[in-house]
Design a protein around this nucleic acid. Structure first.
Lengths: 249, 249
DNA sequence: ACCGTGAACGAACATCGTTCGTTGATGTCG
DNA sequence: CGACATCAACGAACGATGTTCGTTCACGGT
């Protein structure tokens, strides 16, 4: 269609060292692991949305184009970062049919703790099943505990989905909440804004909201309590699906 | 810092009618509601990620800049679209303490149905509490049912969060799943890929996954069953928090 | 008949993900 | 030991994005 501008850099002048301001050996030692680590550093510092091919490249003192030799595209890079972090999950408990409920809870807590240790990161797995090697390992760990429970296979399948969903979105919402309330005064202001918002609603049109407002804004650091509440409900609900004989465990 | 290129269009030649190809009355066809409707049309057709200020403007035969007179920015526009859709929720049941469990389920089903009727749209509310007018109305409806149940206020607060979370992410995942499996052969191929992926795993390293593989890929259109499974677990779990006297309801 | 207000608008900016063609360091073969 | 082939590194560019800027111009009140 339209004529494009000349594609090649100005010729003439190649002698003055392509990159005068960098003194490391000309050939950089770029690798997939280094790129993943750099991206993770950005996630920790500024969140998933700050992960830009250029930002990652800057972190490594190079250009964005150089990354594509080691990484297919941005999505694949983020998936790799996510799976790398999943490697931090240590769950060596051997499935015990008598303690499956506590073991599932413990695994879920570990999962959320590892994810929330890296800011936003849960966001990248919101709409997708993690198929990385560490993700599969984690799935095996969770399923092995569930399988030991004696629940029917169909229920185990649903349970894995439900738990993964719950755990992932909890990690994400915790991170968003933490980002909005970095400092204690941020948190106070957040609570204040929420309360005044609820308070500003008509008590006639919204009687329940205004009446329950104090219960709707969670008190300081009740984040964990909310998670435990949901976790307990899910695990108890799963136990209700046990075949009658196994009900005791 | 750097000198910017000249900011104004070439002068000379203003006589030839700024926009020859459009014959609608020159002024006055744009409004907030029209913009929201156009954005929603794009969501329905191509998903949330396809909603671009330029795409919305194109839909209205205008330029992107014109939208900013009626909408603060893209986020606010998407929030408005979301809240507009929430207006489709009709839930006129009067809270009945004896039927709160079924009423909560019915409300949740309606919520998911309305959201999934508009593609991706649930995505825009993943990390945020809906504070639009229809969102608040929906929250009042849900809370009024929960309040009639006799559950403690604290539990109601947690329950609202948990249900909202579950319902939103279910709607989103349903949409993502539907997008990946538009045609029946897409769905067949999706199942096939998932099964072969599970089958490709080492049965020694991942014994549980390989053993449960048939239960992990949901059979045709078990999407609703999964939702009902989670919904039942949550509602039953909530009922377990009723003070002893009210347990019968 | 004027005129001010504010919506509409084209153009531009900064930034994004990604691709292209070149370059140059390194390992290999003659 | 020197010619060569390979391929990561790289600068530049493309097209698309959200948003802002300064201008224009139709309309409503005086």
């Amino acid at each position: 269609m339209t004529e494009r501008a000349p594609r090649h850099p100005r010729d003439a002048w190649h002698q003055p060292r392509g990159r005068g301001h960098r003194h490391a050996p000309r050939r950089r030692t770029l690798s997939r692991d280094v790129i993943i680590a750099a991206a993770l550093r950005i996630v920790d510092r500024d969140g998933v949305d700050a992960v830009t091919m250029r930002a990652v490249a800057d972190e490594l003192d190079t250009g964005a184009a150089s990354l594509y030799a080691h990484v297919q595209d941005k999505d694949e890079l983020l998936a790799a970062v996510f799976d790398h972090v999943l490697g931090d999950i240590v769950f060596d408990a051997v499935p015990d049919p008598k303690r499956w409920q506590e073991q599932i809870k413990e695994f879920s807590r570990t999962y959320v703790r590892v994810l929330t240790a890296h800011n936003d990161l849960a966001k990248v797995s919101l709409g997708s099943i993690p198929t990385g090697s560490n993700g599969v390992r984690g799935m095996e760990a969770m399923l092995s505990v569930l399988a030991a429970s004696g629940l029917p296979g169909q229920v185990i399948g649903y349970a894995a989905d439900l738990l993964g969903q719950f755990v992932t979105v909890t990690a994400y919402e915790t991170a968003v909440f933490a980002k909005n309330t970095g400092s204690p005064e941020d948190l106070a202001e957040f609570h204040h804004r929420l309360l005044t918002f609820f308070g500003s609603l008509s008590a006639i049109e919204f009687p329940t909201i205004t009446a329950l407002a104090p219960d709707l804004v969670q008190p300081d650091e009740a984040e964990d309590a909310r998670f435990e509440f949901g976790l307990d409900i899910i695990v108890r609900g799963l136990a209700a699906h046990l075949p009658p004989k196994r009900r005791g465990a």
